[in-house]
Design a protein around this nucleic acid. Structure first.
Lengths: 205, 205
DNA sequence: AAAATATACTAACATCTGTTAGTGTCAAAA
DNA sequence: TTTTGACACTAACAGATGTTAGTATATTTT
């Protein structure tokens, strides 16, 4: 008589209170960050999750759905924050600073998702791709509008607003894992450094 | 009687004085920029070049060789510039400004290669991968050393040098094609905007 | 003109890709 | 206890991938 044993361990969900789907998304985000969306395969994701590739499809519709969820999760956070900042009564420079700190915090606390969203959104497929392009364009325009208002009110130096936005967003997007995990610079300290730099520049006054 | 025609048009090399290999590299760089290294296939590159995929292998050894050439071309330019700047007698702030302008010019004049080198170097394979990691680390350290000297000489504000380098390099790396081709901001003007921002910040003094 | 080299072609390969079909089992609901 | 739904499995697909082999032609050298 022959007895078959085979491991059919389910994805563990007891540790955190994440659903299985959320666990998959989390692991996928890490892999997308490390190898890029195209280079990370469903079989690799499945390996990390501890499951066969086909099993992932009990939880998600496609590989691209994973990217959709990651990217739009981040984009929606951005939009909400921008709504909030626009509605606030802060000075324009304080608005800019608030957005900067928000982005830096995001980079520190949601590194994988933000990183992936920033660098891999081009692999979205339509209609999500054009949706994302619109959201990004709109966000930058709203950001630039704040700067332009600051220039008008003489709170901000007279520079090209679009360029300033580009610089700030990319500067923050450049925070890397080694930089986050380095003992010398952590969290708040990194934040202060970046804000100081971006608001006041390099030159000693 | 049956007569066969088939096009065996060679890659045209008369236009510029580029070798066929250089033409392939150029087209590959554009494609790598647009789709990413992994997503761009040899067959697509061949299409753009106007040839069958297999024919590319008369000129190059592998897809990865294309990436090697692109990435190390850029890295070597960086190293040479850094040698030159270090050897100069400029003030530290002027050294930083010189490097900034060099990077911005590079982004404008060699956009595809620089962009690809910056974002796709992770797909290099060893030993090129670790070589590139070393070159990048070394470059940033040399850049940071200039800033630290500037801080010591009280020419530069007291901030974390590594963070400053990260900010500047990524801010410049964020120049995108739409931004380059926009009528409103071109070449020198973009350069002035960025240098102003990075040296003097946003705040109006 | 002949020989040699460079370079294009077609055909095919082995491997990897995302994904579906079909089946069995465990946990929760009835 | 029985039923049901969630979820894991194996097997396999069709298509894309980088690359090689073998061959034919165009260009350059002799």
């Amino acid at each position: 008589m022959l007895v078959y044993f085979w491991q059919m361990g389910r994805i563990k969900t007891t540790n955190n209170q994440l659903t299985r789907k959320e666990i998959i998304i989390e692991k996928a985000a890490t892999l997308f960050k490390e190898k890029g969306f195209k280079a990370a395969s469903m079989r690799e994701i499945a390996d990390v999750v501890g499951v066969e590739a086909a099993s992932l499809y009990n939880h998600i519709k496609s590989k691209n759905e994973l990217l959709n969820i990651i990217c739009f999760g981040v984009a929606n956070r951005y939009t909400h924050k921008m709504d909030e900042v626009e509605a606030s009564k802060l000075s324009t420079l304080a608005k800019v600073e608030s957005l900067l700190r928000f982005h830096i915090d995001g980079m520190i606390n949601y590194f994988e998702e933000v990183y992936v969203s920033d660098r891999e959104w081009k692999h979205l497929d339509n209609p999500y791709l054009s949706n994302m392009q619109n959201q990004r364009r709109t966000y930058r325009k709203r950001f630039a509008a704040i700067i332009e208002e600051g220039i008008k009110k003489k709170e901000i130096k007279k520079i090209d607003a679009a360029t300033a936005v580009l610089i700030m967003l990319h500067a923050i997007g450049g925070i890397e894992s080694w930089h986050r995990s380095t003992r010398k610079i952590i969290g708040k300290e990194l934040e202060e450094n970046m804000v100081t730099f971006l608001i006041d520049g390099l030159r000693k006054i």
